[in-house]
Structures are given as C-alpha cells and as structure tokens.
Design a binder for these strands. Structure first.
Lengths: 215, 215
DNA sequence: GGACTTCAGTGACTAGAATCACTTAAGGGA
DNA sequence: TCCCTTAAGTGATTCTAGTCACTGAAGTCC
C-alpha cells in the first residue's frame, strides 16, 4: 500500500492506534468506486467491513417492487454499520449502498474486524460509536416518515443533502422523488412552493439552495 | 441479592460468564415495574443499562405533539439497546420504554457496563448482538411505514403482538391506533374487514386472533 | 437548425386516511 | 336494575399524496 494511502487513512481515522493502522494497511484492500456504483447489498453475504475514505455513499432501502428510500449518507471517516451487523439476509427488502460521487472504500475482511474488536480498544470504540450514530440517523429518518408530511420530509431531505454536499443540489426531481419514495409530479409541486417562498431556485437538473431554515 | 434472582438471571442470560454474573449480582439492582410504568425516556440522562428479566416492554417514539408509534417490543433476555447507546438527547422526539405487563428489570450502572465491554467477552458479544437485533427490528418497522399501507401495517402490528403475547390481544382500538400513529375510526374499519375475512374476532377490549397468514 | 430526448410544469381525477359528528353497544358500579 | 362510562360502529366530508395525460422547455446530437 502506498504512502499516500496511509496518510489518507490516518487523516480520516485519526483515532486508530498505530498497530491497528498497520494491520489495516497490510490486510485490507482499497477500492475505487465509480459514481453510481453499488458498494454493498444485503441478501448476499457480506464478507467485508466497509470504511469510507473519500467520496460520498448513500445507504437506502429497496423493496421488492423497486421502491426505495434513503436511510442516510456516509461521509469519509464513517463506516457502513450494516456491513458490520448484517448477517445473511434473505428478506424481500434490501439495504443498498451506492456511491453518490466517486469514492474510495477500505475493505476489511470480516473475520479480522471481528478479531480486532477484542484486540484494539480504538477499533472497538469506533464500531460501537458507528452503531450509535447510524441508529440515531435511522431514527431521524423514521421520525420524519412517521410523523411528518411530504413537505417537511422534502425539507429534511434537502437539508441533509446540503450538509453533505453543498448548496447546489445536482439532482432531478425524479431522483428526489425516488429517494423519498414519492412521485415526480408531487415533488415538482412542492419544490415550486419552496421556490415561491424564496428558499430555493430551480434549474434544470439542479437546485440552488438559499435558505431552508426560513420556510 | 437473593438466590431466586440469581437463578432468574442465569435462566434469561445463560450466555454470561460466571464472573460477569457475579458482578451483575453485586453491582446492579433489580427493579419491579408496574404495568404501564415508564422504564426509560431519552432526553434525560440515562445512567443505567437496562436488561429485561421478566415481563414485556414496549419501546416507542413520541413526538412533540404527543403522537407516538411503536418501534419494537423487548422480551426477557433482551436489553434496551437505547439505554446503551443514547447519550443525552434534547430533540423534540423522544424514545420511551414502557412496561406492557408487570416486569422486572436489571439496572446496571452505565460506567460498569462500559467497563465490562472490554473486560468480558460475553458482555461484549451481548451488546453487539443487541445492537444488531434492534437495528434489524427498527428497519422492519421503517419498512412497513415507508412502503406499506395502513392495512398491512396493522397486520404486521398484530402479528408482532401475537408473537410476544399470544392470540388474545387485550387492547382497545384506540390503543392500537395510537401505536400505529393513526386514528381509532380507521383502525376500527380495518379490523372489521379482518373480522369479515375470518382472520380475527372482535370483542370489547380484546381481539381474538385466528389466523393472520391467510389474509 | 431541426429532430430527439430528457426534464419540468400543470390540470383533472382517484385513493387512502384523517377528521367530525354522531349513534349504538358493553360492561361496571350503586 | 338503571345509570354512567368507555369502547366501537358508521356516514359524510376533507386533505394529502399518487396517478394520468398531457404540454412546454432545455439541452444534445447529427
């Protein structure tokens, strides 16, 4: 593994102890993922723990009819909690992780990440912390679906998107509709309302966010 | 702590190693909880990890307007994952745990359960396994809310209820509506349909389940 | 600079679910 | 037994969101 990669890992995961870093460097592989490429999918066995080094992943649920909805985003320094917790799943609904932008992921063989839990305190803490974070995020998503109307959910979605990738949202209405498990027309109408309120400006294939808090 | 309690713990948590059991016995307290009593609530600091020894708890989310919905049930041998993962939360929505029947819970001081993670392999495994289970259950709940109509959600709810507490569901339509974050009238109508299909029989304050699979 | 493709806007209609305003039924206590 | 409370049933209405069937607009590729 190259020096530059070691530095990249060190930068994203500064909390890992030196010996753990060495193990990661020797035993794991780094994979380049293209935009839109699938990183993970439950149902098939997952043999690796996935850490994100650069780029952005989205983790979402997909049911048997092709409906989907966004669970949360993963940013560099995060781990895909699912890759650590999911055993083989044969349910109808799947959890998928897909690259939103080009990304680099570290793949750690499952049996090692399992061992490391006992061996490295920093790894152990990292895993526990990851679970907690994901659980919290999932709860927020659940919240917005359970208690809120689509208008508020859209707002929540846009805010989250701004947080991970800035004020220029390069998505079509269709894509947003898909991630919210809604339909294009409805999303278009709601976006239009937001534009009228001055919170955003609509363009073809991208949305310019001004201020989502005022709405 | 009495002998009978030790046996009860041993029975519900046979996977714990002897020395861990001793620590639990000496350092934790067992609390009797009445039906309907609140066991836990986020937002306030949680100082203890909660293990369920007997009875049934329901864990649910409650928003600022008093709407709620069921996340999952906890049965003896389970731990409340939240009590292990939630830091102080000051959000508008809360997670609550409430006793469905009289119950006994083991309260373990947080600093100890934290220590034990490193000290006892069986504890560590138990915690990780609990996280996984709860995450999975939460996903199922999320699924049913995101992709399914109220009719299917009701069915899912009833099935889950049957699994944890048998074929005589002693709940009013009102209570069910609350846990599904719906309204009584709607639930009544849906239940009526289920009755007409022969899956259940309705009585005052309880539902007799025959077969939910045929629907 | 047309022709084509993809994205976005819009009106009409439908469906599921919530709400309102009641009525009816069941059980419990005096 | 009658009264009272609480649970359940029901029709009418409203609202939100999804669907259908288009039209219009913006890019893109010869």
């Amino acid at each position: 593994m190259e020096i530059s990669q070691k530095e990249a890992i060190l930068q994203q995961f500064p909390q890992f102890e030196q010996t753990l870093l060495d193990e990661i460097l020797t035993h794991s592989t780094i994979k380049q993922v293209e935009e839109g490429e699938e990183v993970m999918r439950t149902g098939q066995y997952i043999r690796s723990t996935v850490l994100l080094l650069s780029g952005l992943l989205k983790v979402y649920r997909e049911d048997d009819e092709g409906n989907e909805f966004l669970m949360y985003y993963l940013e560099p320094g995060n781990a895909c909690a699912l890759s650590m917790m999911c055993t083989a799943r044969d349910e109808q609904s799947q959890i998928m992780a897909k690259a939103v932008t080009v990304a680099e992921v570290i793949l750690i063989p499952s049996h090692l990440s399992e061992q490391w839990l006992a061996k490295y305190k920093s790894w152990h803490n990292f895993v526990i912390a990851s679970y907690r974070q994901r659980f919290e995020e999932l709860l927020q998503t659940l919240d917005s679906i359970a208690f809120k109307g689509l208008d508020e959910r859209l707002l929540f979605y846009l805010k989250r998107h701004v947080k991970v990738s800035g004020k220029e949202i390069r998505l079509s209405h269709q894509q947003i509709a898909l991630e919210l498990n809604s339909s294009r027309e409805v999303i278009s109408r709601l976006l239009k309302k937001l534009e009228q309120s001055g919170a955003i400006t609509l363009h073809r294939n991208f949305i310019e966010v001004h201020d989502l808090e005022v709405v």
